[in-house]
Simulated scan of single mutants.
Amino acid sequence: MLSGKRIILGVTGGIAAYKAAFLLRAYQKAGADVRVAMTPAATRFVGVETFSSLSKHEVAVEVFPENRANTESWTQHISWAEWADLFVIAPCTANTLAKIAHGISDNMLTATVLAARCPLLICPTMDGEMYEAPAVQTNLETVKERGYHLLEPEEGYLASGLEGKGRLPEIASILKESSRIIPTNNTEGPLTGQKVVVTAGPTREYIDPVRYISNPSSGKMGFAMAEAAQQLGAEVTLIHGPVSIPKPRGIETVEIESAADLFEEVKKEADADIVIMAAAVADFSPQETSRQKIKKKGAKTELSLTQTQDILRWLGKHKQDGQQLIGFAMETEELIKNAQTKLEKKNADWIVANSISEPDAGFQSDTNSVYLLDGKSQQQFKGSKKEVALTILQTIFG
């Protein structure tokens, strides 16, 4: 649910501020793009450079920062508020909670709260007696009445040395609550309610730590298929190899490297309603992988290979009732004949076939020319990969 989402992580001046760095990384691993807003007090616990380096974004602290040449910086809270899908404040001190409850905007974090168009998740974190104080409890009720989301602190050993309720919740709990409240794709279409798994990009089969067998796949066609399925209303999981193109927003992504990695992830998702195997999977892997770089001097010039798992064929053998299996075939000759053979041998329902010898088609191109086969007929589609992907799914699923 967090993949492709844009999250502002607010960090305030409590000892738990250091945990926000781990939370940021967890959001990133879930596929989210994260920007960090800190209160001035938070910078006393964790340096701005830490969050800037981790997030790959500038960190917002002051509305009017010193030595800032950009005269539009004071409107940053507006642009960030428009950018975000979710605003999470973790940890949130009693001081910042009070400011939010009473609409005070004396730093970039609190100003952005007032400008936010997205859900706000507050994780109040403080000493146990502070948390139970009447003023804090009143402020908690106030922010709840205004529609903000609260994740109550956990009990345990606190920075004061006392036991009580006030600890920042575990990162897994914050991610779970974030996933629950973040806006989701509500597109209605022919694939609404369907779970779709798409594989994309190349795999890498390592010879040694610095050399591998792979192919030039960019992942563009597979990513386009995932976006098309989402556009038609599906819940999509995208499993992809090493690529440099941006991840699609709102789609859960899983990164893999080798064919064996891909097989393990596909098996986890084998109960999907629709599986689209668009990945360019290496057919061969080195029989042995060296742990150290193989030196040129004295090295063998022959490389022994072994076949990798035929994932599409495995899916065909284990296909469930009603499940639709769509494979891809990249050929250099006898395109239709070879694609038809693949359709039958793999027990697929559809094969999308294209030739790398055609102009404006193939691995790195933004356009494609393909044939869609179902064993009875064939149809040709041309255009951008996004247009072709959408046309393929509309043709199959109406």
Rank of each mutant, 00 (worst) to 15 (best):
E58G: 13
Q309V: 13
V143F: 12
V275C: 10
K176I: 04
K195F: 08
Y27Q: 02
G14W: 06
L372S: 02
T301Y: 10
A81G: 04
C92H: 09
A111P: 06
P91G: 05
K267D: 06
A60T: 04
R204E: 11
G164E: 10
I7S: 06
I213V: 13
L158K: 03
S79D: 14
L24Y: 06
M130L: 11
S377F: 00
G31L: 07
L191A: 09
F87A: 08
A224R: 01
K267M: 13
L325V: 01
L168P: 03
L23Q: 03
W74V: 13
I8S: 07
R211E: 07
V63A: 04
T367Q: 08
W83Y: 09
V88M: 06
L151H: 00
E132L: 13
H149S: 12
M225V: 06
V236Q: 04
A389G: 10
V48S: 10
T237E: 07
P153T: 07
I294G: 05
I15S: 14
Q378H: 12
L238C: 02
A299P: 03
V236S: 03
V210M: 12
D106L: 06
T12E: 07
Q28W: 10
L372N: 01
A135D: 11
N95K: 03
E82D: 14
T50Y: 03
K317W: 11
N139A: 02
S55G: 06
E129R: 14
Q292H: 14
I392N: 00
Q379K: 15
V48F: 05
T367D: 10
A260R: 13
Q194E: 09
A133M: 13
H102W: 09
K346C: 10
L121E: 05
N347V: 05
E255G: 12
L2I: 05
T12N: 06
F22R: 11
E62K: 09
A30R: 15
F223P: 06
K195V: 11
P202C: 11
T289S: 01
K296E: 07
F51I: 08
D321C: 03
P216L: 01
D261S: 11
L168Y: 05
T125I: 05
R44I: 03
T192M: 09
M126R: 03
V46P: 09
R249C: 02
C92Q: 07
K267T: 12
G201Q: 00
S105Q: 15
V88I: 15
R167D: 04
N354I: 01
E334L: 14
T184M: 15
D85S: 02
S285V: 04
T110Q: 02
A361Q: 02
V63M: 12
V281Q: 00
G327A: 07
V88T: 09
V236P: 05
I171D: 02
A94W: 08
A329Y: 03
P246H: 07
A21E: 10
T138G: 11
P153N: 04
E49S: 15
S105W: 08
